[in-house]
Amino acid sequence: MPHDDHDHPHALLPPEPALRVKALETILTRKGLIDPAALDEIIDTYQNKIGPQNGARVVVRAWTDPEFKQTLLQDATRVVAGLGYYGRQGEHMVVVENTPKQHNMVVCTLCSCYPWPLLGIPPSWYKSDAYRARAVREPRKVLAEFGVSLPVETSVRVWDSTAEIRYLVLPMRPEGTEGMSEDDLAALVTRDSMIGTGLPRVPS
C-alpha cells in the first residue's frame, strides 16, 4: 500500500502557503480540472450564505416549540433538512440538549469535523491542536478559557466526532427571555453556544 512514501509530491510546489495554493489552482485550471468561477462560488457560499445563523434558527425554534424540540432531539437530520439545512458535512445530524445536570461540548480530535450546513466553516480555535488535544481530557479547563464555569452538579459530556455524525448543542434558553421575538432570541444564540464552548447571551 502507498504509505509513508517520503517523497511527498507537495514539496514540489512553492513552500509559502498562499503561493502553494495559487500554484495548484493555476495548474488545475490550465488543465481544465477547475473552474475558478466555481471556486468563487464555493467561497461565497461559506462566507456569506451558510453560517451559525442557520443553527441559531433551529435553536430558537426548539426554545419556542416543544413539539419541534422533541422531534429534533429524536431525528435531527430529517427535522433540520425540513428547514432547508442539509448538505455537505451535515448529512447525519444529532442535536444534544444542555440541561442543569448535563453540559454538552463538541470536538473532533482526529481532524476537525463540524456541522457545516448549520454552523458554516469552523473557527480557527476549533481546528487548533490545543482544542483537539485538550477538549476530551480537560473540558472544564478549556471552558474556563472561554470564560465559562459550570456548577459542580453539572456533568460534562464531550462528543468526539469520529464518524460522519455531526453534533449541534441545544443550549438552555436564558432566563428573562419570555415574550421575546424569534429574531431577538436568535441574536442571543452564539456559535460557541452551539458547539458547547459558550453559553447564549443574556438579554440586556
Partner: peptide, 28 residues
C-alpha cells in the same frame, strides 16, 4: 499544546484569502 485561543463571533470565516481558496480548490 497550551491554551485555546477563542476568537470573536464576528471573526472572518477565512482569516486569509488563501484559506478560502485552499478550501475551494480542495472541494472542487
Amino acid at each position: 499544546d497550551g491554551r485555546v485561543t477563542p476568537e470573536g463571533e464576528d471573526a472572518p470565516v477565512f482569516a486569509e484569502d488563501w484559506h478560502g481558496r485552499a478550501l475551494a480548490v480542495t472541494l472542487a
